[in-house]
Design a protein around this nucleic acid. Sequence first.
DNA 1: CGGTTCGACTCAGAAATGTCACT
DNA 2: AAGTGACATTTCTGAGTCGAACC
Length: 540
Amino acid sequence: LLLLWTFCEWPELLVSNSQREIWKWWEEEPKYEDSIKWMSLRHNGPAFPPPYERLPDNIKFYYNGEIVTLNSEAEEVASLYAKMLYHELTRDETFCKNFFTDWKDAMSPEVKDVIAALDQCDFREMAAYYKRKKTNEKVQQEFGYFFLDGHKQRIGNSPSRGKLKKKILPEDVTINCSEKEIPEPLPGCSWGQVQHNSAVIWLASWKESPPGKLKYMMPHANSKLMGERDWKKYEVARRLKHHRDHIQEQYRKDWDSEDKSLQQRGVVLYLIDKFALRVGNKTKEGMMANTFGCCSLRVKHVTLHEDHKGETKKLEFNFMGKSSILDKKMVPVEEKVFRNLQLFKEEKGERGEADLFDHVNPQVLNTYLKGLTKGLTTKVFRTHIASITMEQELKNLTHHIKDKVSSFNEANRKVAELCNHQRTKPALHWFELQVTIEASRDELSLSKKKLEQAMQGSSTEELKNDVKRKDDELRELGVNSSMEENKQLNLNSSKLYYIDPRIIVAWCIKWGVPVEKIYTKAQRDKFAWAIHMNDENFEF
DNA sequence: CGGTTCGACTCAGAAATGTCACT
DNA sequence: AAGTGACATTTCTGAGTCGAACC
């Protein structure tokens, strides 16, 4: 399960330093059908890092205190572990066990005989070497480009490095490009497959092994291919306003339906329409914590409060959502929804583990929604509600607050709250903390020593205080290391994925706020289409 | 034909990196 | 004037959605 290398830097070949061409694709008439994504697509394929370089002679690996010379492959694998020696993961039993098993496979028989336990291995010299090397080298991480219909475009994610996965070779990679524009693989290698599929936008793909999931090399967010989709996404979300009344009317009727699946669909749709929940596909039941969305909610995730704090009919959500972020909130609901939920829970005998909505699933919902208007699916509601809310909040807040940027952030915060976008304040890294504690302990013992020496002499009061203070500091560090994580709102996700940029651009023009105050460089590139439209009167 | 898996995107917070004011 | 530390921005890649293929 080891990935020795994976794709990383892009060859500089195609990178020119000349001024960046701005392709105003949003001003052009569509030249081909929706289902065709490109006419020509040229790129160099993924770049592979150079082969492994052996450690210099002065850097040793020790087993049980003795120098052991590893064979090249075993050393390469060891270097992966050494590089993350001070990462919390190296304390994880399973991680170490897996690593050790895989590492042994890479060892020569002689080395294998010697190395019997991971905890007798001393990687510290190697770790120090790589830490030095990393800071010295300052690897130039230049992004690559590809050519779409003759225009230069950036490539998106440069896939992971240094993770424990299988080595990816050109033979594992499928290239997607124009005919006659096939990139050169590494000398002596060949691509696994080459295809010319203009119905998709990816440039290269490969299977990650494990877990066998497909990975893609995709265009950058600021490219035409991605921007176009983004624009389209907001257009669909915008159109929902013409259908929302009808949808609401319909689901209110469905609450009274004799048909269980209609009745449940009605309630689920209400929850999605009111509280911007995700649809909730089935998630893989592995060792990972199960997460939930609207359709997959269990009985225990919803608590009904008949009379909560003097108000009536409140619903309490409490479940793990996407990325294991806790969704916990108390919301008012309409009488009939309340009664229906009560019924659904009773039907399952209040068994907490039972599925609350056992007669609907995401496919059923989307099939229904697609029938109402083209492109409508459940996730559109989140986009729609977020954008509508932003527009409304901006209208309400901007007049009252002198600082326009703060009022913007305030509106943004409301949307983030709605979408339950959280951010975990990172606790001090385990290792860094250990180092700090270690240093602190050294200081303390030094002070103690000084104190002892001074005992013979006179003025020891100051030194005594010093010892006491340092002792307290050390104790404090110990407490902080077990500090509980504290959750805060994260405004970035909603800004990047849910709020129509044209709303923001219009607001900027109206209040004379430079777009630069709101969007970062990368964000301005991503939303170039919206910024260039420059429509002050835009209404979502 | 209903459920499950697969392929292709789309969204997610954390980690890594950059910046800037202050020593 | 190089370090440092708080905060901002960018990168990374896992975790969702959803239509289509498969069975």
